[in-house]
Design a protein around this nucleic acid. Structure first.
Length: 497
RNA sequence: GAGCCAGUAGCUCAGCUGGUAGAGCAGCGGCCUUUUAAGCCGUUGGUCCGGAGUUCGAAUCUCCGCUGGCUCACCA
């Protein structure tokens, strides 16, 4: 720490010197005419033209009365050449005491150096912001066309806690978040083209409905009442379908008070959308088109590289009922078995069960263990056991099942959809069986929402609904293996002083 | 929640079966007007994650704790 303070103290001393030179180390603006990649990509056109760039000083090679440095801006890095004779004595003196990490603006002519690198031959240089805290120094070298990185800033804890440093120093991190933004834009564009209305529903909810999860609890002082941070927005969006909006969607931050691992962060982004007069068959076609549109817009192809697999998103995707999928991958037909029979089958398949699991949960367990990880190419798994889906409509041919599907890609589900339950009496019964689970100690069982039932009693049209975990979608589209790598500021334990 | 691994300079790391801490980069002082991991000479810098124990002596061994990573469990 002593040493660290020393490094900062040296920079503070330099700051003082700079002020004494009559230079404002924190000026108010700078006129940028170009960015780094733009200059490199349009060299012929810009050669010998004057440009001005702004960015962070990332490398300095000082040689007496002339120097090379690299400036990093939003697009990348570009080299600048600073000559004492050209910029003048005062400016060169300033340049010599600048540190890596300082923000500078440079104006000069574009040309190539002897070794062929596009370089700005500086005529003026302006300090735009003095950095007081040292940055990790990452060096790169080209070797046989391969980029070798030295001293990479790799400590994950520090990368997540100080994302601003991570972003400065690890350029590929930036790409992930640019892509994340493009994905959301592409989805929004697709939905808007299809006449959806983007809406906003409450984050603070008196009843946490729409999913099975433990909530965060908070308190409203004026109303003196308990409120929950939403775990889903499903019940509000369906109230809007009742109200007469036929196509609605919301990108929502949802909150679940559960464990954290590479697939779970306490707050995450969920897209939910609802479409009146459609069912889950229609929704499967829709999901295919949504994914294809997004992949084309973001990656320019319907192929995805993930975990060493090449995934092809072109429609149609395989459609399998859950029972057929289990039969295909385990050889067992579970469709006619009762709970005892299912337990026996699970045992034969070496799937561990806990005693409180009901028939639906056992089926899901077998599926999750033995089938899901093998579904690499996009596959719709359809028709889930009724007990696990209290908001989905019963299957038109089989009352033990609901009309629900999940698309699985790369061995992981990326969405969840169903024909929405709109029979108010059936919905009340489903809530009541959830209440019984809750009494038995299931902390994730859903709450009975009297107002939602009132809305269904007013009457909801046949409706298809869809939820997509946006973070996991981004993981899939960017090839990242941890949710923390697609969240700018993942949740961390408090930093120890 | 469980198991495994890790924490040493600003960054990346070395430090063997215990003998009192090192390198490269960065920093600082020099030299250098086409360099690119620039180079050359010199040099500063450490609560070895924290605490307790064993020992003449602990970065190193033991225990407890903290933080993180990975895997599993829970969970969409």
């Amino acid at each position: 720490m002593e040493d660290f303070n020393q490094l900062i103290q040296i920079r503070k001393d330099k700051l003082k010197t700079i002020r004494e030179m009559g230079v404002n180390p924190y000026p108010y603006e700078f006129n940028q005419t170009h960015k780094s990649e733009q200059i490199k990509n349009n060299f012929e056109e810009l050669e010998e033209k004057t440009v001005s760039i702004a960015g962070r000083l990332m490398a300095v090679r000082l040689m007496g009365k002339a120097s090379f440095c690299h400036i990093q801006d939003e697009q990348g890095r570009i080299q600048a050449y600073i000559r004492k004779d050209t910029v003048g004595e005062e400016t060169y003196r300033l340049f010599k005491i600048l540190d890596i990490g300082d923000q500078v603006g440079i104006e000069g002519k574009v040309a190539k150096t002897r070794t062929g690198e596009v370089t700005i031959f500086a005529e003026t240089l302006k300090l735009l912001s003095k950095s007081l805290r040292p940055l990790p120094i990452v060096k790169e070298k080209e070797e046989d066309g391969e980029k070798v990185v030295y001293d990479q800033f790799a400590d994950k804890e520090m990368r997540y806690r100080q994302r601003y440093v991570d972003l400065v120093v690890n350029p590929n991190v930036k790409e992930v978040f640019v892509k994340r933004s493009k994905i959301i834009t592409a989805i929004r564009e697709f939905l808007d083209q299809q006449d959806f209305l983007e809406v906003e529903t409450p984050i603070l909810q008196p009843i946490h409905g729409g999913a099975a999860a433990r909530p965060f609890v908070t308190h409203h002082n004026t109303l003196d009442r308990k409120l929950y941070l939403r775990i889903a927005n499903e019940l509000y969006l369906k109230r809007l379908i009742v109200g007469g909006f036929d196509r609605v969607y919301e990108f929502s931050k949802d909150f679940r008070n559960e464990g954290m691992d590479r697939f779970h962060n306490p707050e995450f982004t969920l897209l939910e959308l609802y479409v009146a007069y459609k069912d889950y068959h229609w929704m499967m076609d829709f999901v295919e088109q949504l994914f294809i549109h997004t992949a084309q817009k973001v990656n320019g192809t319907t192929k995805l590289q993930f975990s060493g697999h090449e995934i092809e998103l072109t429609a149609p995707w395989k459609r399998l009922t859950m029972f057929d999928a289990i039969k295909e991958y385990t050889g067992k037909d579970l469709s006619q078995l009762d709970e005892a029979g299912l337990r026996k089958a699970a045992k034969e398949l070496n799937v561990d069960l806990s005693p409180e699991m009901g028939a639906g949960k056992i089926i899901d367990e077998i599926f999750g263990e033995l089938v899901e990880p093998k579904l690499i190419q996009p596959t719709f798994i359809m028709d889930y056991p009724v007990e696990m889906s209290p908001l989905a409509k019963k299957h038109r041919d089989n009352p033990r099942l609901v009309e629900r599907f999940e698309p699985i890609i790369g061995g992981k589900e990326v969405a969840n959809a169903f024909s929405e339950l709109n029979d108010p009496l059936d919905q009340r019964q489903r809530f009541e069986s959830q209440m019984k689970l809750k009494e038995r100690g299931d902390l994730e069982a859903q709450e009975l929402d009297e107002d939602y039932l009132r809305a269904l009693e007013i009457g909801m049209p046949p409706t298809a609904g869809l939820g997509i975990g946006i973070d996991r979608l981004v993981m899939l589209f960017t090839g990242q293996h941890s949710i923390r790598d697609v969240l700018l500021f993942p949740q961390m334990r408090p930093e120890k002083k």
